[in-house]
Design a protein around this nucleic acid. Structure first.
Length: 566
RNA sequence: UGGGGAAUAGUGUAACGGCAGCACAACUGACUCUGGAUCAGUUAGUCUAGGUUCGAAUCCUAGUUCCCCAGCCA
């Protein structure tokens, strides 16, 4: 971050996006003398990676300008909102590293103040009670190209409006029978300004306010007031609210109260997933996934369970930038961020996913040697560990081919490879079952290559991982592919819908995987690199005697790419 | 056919009238006890047409395309 010496205004790190530029302008012009942002989730679903982007913008701007940041629930609709969501959102925000100090707020806590302000608008003739039904309201609203017409109740007297509004609050009227509306302009080309509803009647208990209210404020009325009450300077939100900004401003101006500035940015889209809470809810409810925290979900809880780190997600948010047009970020970028983070931090361990028995004929029966293995080649301080080696091992089925193609460097009859941190072994024979499948590989080893180096400088073309059969721990491994089989699940032909694009093979469960004994002490949430395979995270389904791993992301695999090319 | 926004390599972004740069992806090669990591390199872009200017991604005009708005959702 650089500082403009003339004004003392911090200019933000690196390139300045249009939001930070606007903040700088406001600080310079004196419109605001400090920065205070907020993240205003509605507790009607779990946070996803798109929220992480918004969170990072809100919180990041606060950080860059040495300001303050509030976490505020926009809980104005009791029909959809639940405490479960409040709890998960708070947890996710903390996990991502957000700090709101003691400023955790709920829009619903301001209901009384909002009500008083509404009476004020009624008193000055800027709001009225309307008896139109829902259908009538939309009929009177007009269309995109035709102006609306005034409600017959638009010119009620102030006294009558006040009386009716108070009786709405008192619970005298049925749901949907009346609304409080702002008196603006039924002919406005901006439909949001055609006498928008401020309050609707909803005899519904609120997750936080209980039965205290039976009228609930609409978003447009409530949001600016919440921002104003909290002294927010910059109210950052997504693009679809651009059309609402005139209304945001109108309410604040009518009331003559503190007036924050709303600035809009584009929400995040990502390939191979969907990002609407409605669709994510549908995936959960219809059991296409196991829950909001299914590792295939783009929710923060899903990503966490999958093995994502908050650092990787924050890095991703920094890299994608901020803009005002629709764009779709490549899922590969998120994966890259995780690999980059975990490469530096994850302990390496050897696990065989699809075991193939390898017997070393000339290795003494019953002998066990402890081989020293490096825990993290990227971090010397991670140290080393001992891995048991013996006559019977498991190797990866993919690491052996009886009739290898040209570019296959791994084990095949007559060929020598290095067993990582072990010995060089040469395949001498194979054992097949009745169906002709290779079920066992026979080898000889070179005792002079202990630890993986040959005194004569011989260098095998491949190094493969292994686990000692006698010492192996059986584990379950869950492999994930994208939840959708196409990059843009929402692009569908007539008659099809986004759910037709669900990838039927998004989950592969492998049981009987063989892990080195080091893993015995792993706890849920621990992340490892399984050498040559990828990064894996211990799932919460693990029990004392059975470990379950999720593959967070595979290692880059240039061999697989080569094979694909043929 | 109203109003509000927006267009830069395959993708995501930077350049604020002065050499179109970065990242991801892809592709080469080097190195490697992970076909990982790392390192070096290559490919590839200003929506279109005019105009202003010594000079335009940037300013102006016209057009094209895309997104948002007709909830008593947020």
């Amino acid at each position: 971050m650089t500082t403009d010496n003339a004004t003392g205004v911090p200019a933000g790190p690196g390139p300045t996006d249009f939001i930070r530029q606007a903040v700088i302008d406001d600080l310079k012009s004196g419109r605001f003398d400090h920065v205070h942002t907020r993240f205003p989730p509605e507790p009607n679903g779990y946070l996803h990676i798109g929220h992480a982007k918004a969170l990072w913008i809100d919180y990041g701007v606060c950080l860059d300008f040495d300001g303050k940041f509030n976490l505020r629930f926009d809980d104005t609709n009791p029909v959809k909102e639940e405490q479960e969501y409040v709890d998960s959102i708070i947890f996710d925000c903390r996990w991502l590293g957000m700090d709101w100090e003691d400023r955790l707020f709920f829009g619903s806590d301001y209901f009384e103040q909002m009500y008083q302000w509404a009476e004020q608008l009624v008193l000055k003739g800027a709001a009225y009670v309307c008896d139109l039904t829902g259908d009538q309201v939309s009929e009177y609203r007009g269309t995109l190209t035709q102006p609306g017409k005034n409600s017959p109740w638009r010119d009620r007297g102030v006294e009558e409006n006040l009386d009716l509004f108070r009786r709405m609050r008192a619970g005298e009227f049925a749901d949907g029978s009346r609304t409080l509306r702002a008196k603006i302009d039924m002919a406005s080309p901006n439909l949001n300004l055609r006498d928008p509803v401020m309050y609707r009647i909803l005899h519904q208990a609120h997750h936080r306010q209980g039965d205290k209210w039976c009228i609930y404020p609409m978003y447009d009325w409530a949001h600016g007031l919440e921002d104003s009450i909290e002294g927010i300077t910059h109210s950052l939100c997504s693009l679809e609210y651009e059309n609402h900004r005139p209304l945001y401003d109108w309410f604040l101006d009518q009331l003559g109260i503190y007036h924050p500035r709303q600035i809009e940015f584009a929400r995040l889209n990502m390939t191979f997933t969907v990002m609407s809470k409605r669709k994510l809810l549908e995936l959960v409810k219809e059991k296409h996934v196991r829950g909001w925290d299914d590792p295939r979900m783009p929710t923060l809880s899903g990503l966490r369970r999958r093995g994502y780190t908050p650092e990787a997600i924050r890095d991703f948010c920094k890299r994608i930038g901020i803009n005002k047009y629709d764009s779709t970020v490549d899922m590969g970028l998120l994966e890259h961020c995780l690999r980059e983070d975990l490469n530096k931090r994850a302990l390496r361990v050897m696990t065989v996913l699809r075991p193939l028995k390898l017997v070393i004929d000339n290795y003494p029966d019953g002998q066990v040697e402890q081989m020293e293995a490096v825990n993290n080649p990227e971090d010397a301080s991670a140290g080393t560990r001992q891995v048991p080696f013996s006559k019977v091992l498991y190797i990866e089925q993919d690491d052996f081919m009886e009739n290898p193609p040209r570019k296959f460097f791994r084990l095949s009859p007559g060929r020598e490879v290095r067993l990582r941190y072990g010995y060089f072994v040469t395949c001498t024979d194979v054992v097949k079952d009745a169906a002709g499948n290779v079920v066992e590989v026979r080898c000889t080893y070179d005792p002079a290559t202990r630890g993986g180096d040959s005194p004569d400088g011989r260098k095998p073309k491949a190094t493969i991982h292994w686990v000692s059969a006698e010492h192996a721990r059986d584990v379950e491994v869950r492999l994930y592919e994208p939840l959708f089989s196409v990059p843009s699940p929402d692009d569908v032909d007539e008659g099809k819908d986004w759910k037709d694009n669900i990838n039927p093979n998004s989950l592969t469960v492998l049981s009987g995987c063989k892990a080195e004994p080091t893993l015995a002490s792993a706890k849920a949430g621990d992340r490892f690199q399984f050498e040559r395979l990828g990064y894996f995270c211990v799932d919460a389904d693990s029990t004392g005697d059975k470990l379950v791993f999720n593959r967070a992301v595979g290692l880059r695999d240039t061999f697989a790419k080569e094979m694909k090319k043929g």
